[in-house]
Design a protein around this nucleic acid. Structure first.
Length: 647
RNA sequence: GCUGUUGUAGCUCAGGGGUAGAGCACUUCCUUGGUAAGGAAGAGGUCGUGAGUUCAAUUCUCAUCAACAGCUCCA
């Protein structure tokens, strides 16, 4: 008998070689029908794998991320089976599940193109095979036998993969007539897959190396019920509607011009208004938190970046140096603000009593991003960071971290981002040689970050080996209204730049000491953040940010003078309003204001003029009835002061 | 940068070897209308750019640029 501990702490006894599926059955048949895999002692395994020793067991279903991943991985095998039956001789590369949902398989179709129609046929075939409810069977194979199998089959990619595997650790999985080299785990049988959608086809190099052959990558996603597939498809549609590139054009926020150059966004008046409001919001919060605004030029001597080390590392990926006409001195468009800020720190001697020094700048930087990487506002070549650098003593790192976390959370709360996690990136525990800075300082900083995150009650994920060579960091991963994850704010400790720039402060011992530098940006980049914000709120910005808060709509030309009077009163109350004074019918004016997502529409006609009132209409909600102008101003101001979200 | 798809009016898109079309937007006129599109007329395009094939190219071919999807990259 063996002892199995469940997540709730309960311990039960089972026969040796019991499977997770057996255990599920012993609890309830309903549960057994949902178990996709199991986590035994922290490792995800087949639910059908015999358990030989004591341990903790968690049954994984569709509600668990690992359960989903297992099913998608198994779906990739199902697609491979369908592919093999439809295109005999197809060779298989790599077919994993994807973190953001779904799976793909890289296949070599010998130059054959797959049409959309064929993709639909492939789906039909997959459904057929899924209904056969074939079990996924695991088999341990000797390396020589595995090589023989794929030689016989003629699959060079699998042989390639096999080369790197050690004898004794090789397993095959077979379902129906398809056998694949695979570590697993898999779901018990294909019948768990009830709804299938193959989403798109793309090229991908074998092993991600562009010197290798380009394979056909087929993407798909599966679900345990048709309803969930439908919901997924609705979500995709909604994401398309919210695409910031589309909304940016429709709402006249920003534009691109080939003449200006790739990846260089042009902010139109409405977009600029939005961005400036966002910027002044953060500026105000930063002033209150003791930041000192600074301003630095857009270019810097090449020597500055040689000193910082960035020239060596990224020089080739930057815009090439520009030169002074006479002396031929080299300058770079600044790819980051920190070297400039280091020089500001050095402009005057510092005492330990001066620290921390918090230098903040909305600094525009230019980076040469690869052509194929440019994407709307999320990946551009010129962008503005809401940058700040905190220079502090090693013992102040934790306190500063807490303050930054407070600021970031205040920003998120104000913009209605309620779902976030902190990703803490620490050193590789195996190899510490690749990091700069003393062991003691790293230890201290890593501890400080972990403690700060814990004290603030942040949901935290710790990633070892993800730290930059110059220091540990904390990144904020935010989920938007559609549940998509974005990396927004970042806080990074840096031991490298203080060293390179020989930054110092005089300690109580009257000796020079090296300060610690913290880089931080709650938005990251204004461009990217606005892109995320646009998609998060579907272009319906909260009233305090939105470029046009109210549109005044006179019923006919006769009421334009009264409309102007109303506009004047709103302007005095710092409400951003525009008049639609065209000779159009009220229905049309309302329609256009609705489509422009203007939060408030003020309909003005004879009744309103006589009573000195306005008829208020709320976007997407409809008529709110008439109120006097002071009443409307109160309504708006209340919404603005409390930073209410749009709805 | 690599692979694939696309490029026609300000926007969304149709068309197709014989030098172009719709809807919306725009301009003018009529209309002054009470909560999501009033009517009429008009203007607007070297069909991304360059070359080739052809009697003839916006249409076919090649190159190039850009956008999109994916890969690789991201201080």
């Amino acid at each position: 008998m063996i002892n199995i501990t469940f997540p709730d702490g309960a311990v039960r006894q089972y026969e040796q070689d019991v499977t997770a599926l057996d255990i599920a059955k012993s609890i309830s048949e309903g549960l057994a029908r949902k178990v996709l895999a199991a986590k035994f002692n922290g490792q995800v395994v087949d639910a059908t794998r015999p358990i030989t020793k004591d341990g903790t067991l968690q049954l994984l279903t569709w509600t668990d991320a690992d359960g989903k991943a297992t099913m998608w991985h198994s779906s990739a095998h199902l697609m491979a089976e369908a592919l093999e039956s439809m295109y005999p001789g197809v060779k298989f590369g790599y077919g994993p599940s994807l973190e953001n949902g779904g799976f793909f398989y890289d296949v070599d179709l010998d130059g054959r193109q797959i049409s959309d129609e064929e993709l639909r046929k492939l789906e039909v075939k997959m459904n057929e095979l899924a209904k056969q409810n074939n079990a996924y069977l695991r088999k341990e194979v000797a390396k020589a036998d595995a090589i023989a199998y794929f030689k016989e089959k003629g699959d060079p990619y699998k042989l390639d993969l096999l080369e790197k595997l050690e004898d004794g650790s090789i397993t095959f999985y077979t379902q129906g007539g398809f056998t694949d080299l695979c570590r697993g785990p898999h779901i018990p049988s294909t019948g768990f897959i009830k709804a299938i959608k193959l989403t798109n086809i793309a090229g991908a190099y074998w092993q991600g190396n562009e010197k290798n052959k380009m394979l056909t990558r087929i993407y798909g996603i599966t679900f345990p019920a048709q309803k969930e597939l439908d919901e997924y498809l609705t979500l995709i549609e909604e994401a398309k509607k919210r695409d910031h590139r589309k909304l940016g054009k429709e709402l006249e926020l920003f534009a691109f011009s080939e003449k200006v150059g790739l990846g260089l966004p042009l902010w139109l008046p409405k977009g600029a208004m939005l961005r400036e409001r966002l910027q002044s919001f953060l500026q105000k919060a930063q002033l209150e938190s003791g930041y000192l605004p600074v301003i630095t030029p857009h270019i810097g001597s090449k020597q500055l970046y040689v000193t910082s080390g960035h020239y060596e590392k990224y020089g080739k990926d930057s815009f090439q140096p520009i030169h002074t006409p006479e002396e031929g001195e080299e300058f770079l468009l600044k790819p980051m603000n920190c070297p400039h800020h280091c020089e500001i720190y050095k402009a005057s001697p510092k005492s330990y009593k001066d620290l921390p020094v918090r230098l903040a700048e909305f600094g525009t930087v230019y980076r040469y991003e690869q052509h194929g990487e440019l994407h709307g506002l999320t990946r551009v070549r010129g962008f503005t960071q809401d940058d700040a650098h905190l220079f502090c003593r090693p013992d102040q790192v934790k306190e500063e971290f807490i303050k930054v976390i407070d600021l970031v959370l205040y920003v998120f709360k104000s913009l209605n981002f309620t779902d976030y996690t902190a990703q803490v990136s620490l050193r590789d525990q195996e190899d510490r040689s690749k990091y700069i800075g003393s062991d003691e300082n790293w230890e201290r900083a890593e501890q400080a970050i972990i403690e700060a995150a814990a004290e603030k009650g942040l949901p935290t994920v710790v990633e070892y080996g993800e730290a930059a060579f110059y220091g540990p960091k904390l990144d904020f991963m935010v989920k938007d209204a559609l549940g998509r994850k974005w990396q927004l704010g970042t806080i990074q400790v840096d031991y490298n730049l203080p060293e390179r720039f020989e930054l110092e402060y005089i300690g109580p011992d009257n000796k020079p000491h090296r300060p610690v530098m913290i880089h931080r940006a709650p938005f990251g980049s204004m461009e990217r953040f606005l892109a995320v914000l646009i998609e998060h709120c579907a272009g319906k910005f909260p009233l305090w940010l939105t470029p046009v808060q109210a549109k005044i709509l006179p019923i006919s030309d006769k009421f334009v003078p009264y409309a102007e009077k109303v506009a004047e009163l709103l302007k005095n109350a710092e409400i951003r309003a525009e008049i639609d004074d065209r000779s159009e019918k009220i229905g049309k004016k309302i329609r256009e204001a609705e489509l422009a997502k203007v939060p408030y529409m003020l309909v003005i006609g004879e009744k309103e003029e006589t009573d000195a009132k306005v008829a208020v209409r709320r976007q997407a909600k409809g008529d709110l009835g008439t109120m006097d102008i002071a009443g409307f101003i109160n309504l708006v101001q209340d919404e603005v002061i409390n930073r209410k979200p749009f709805e």
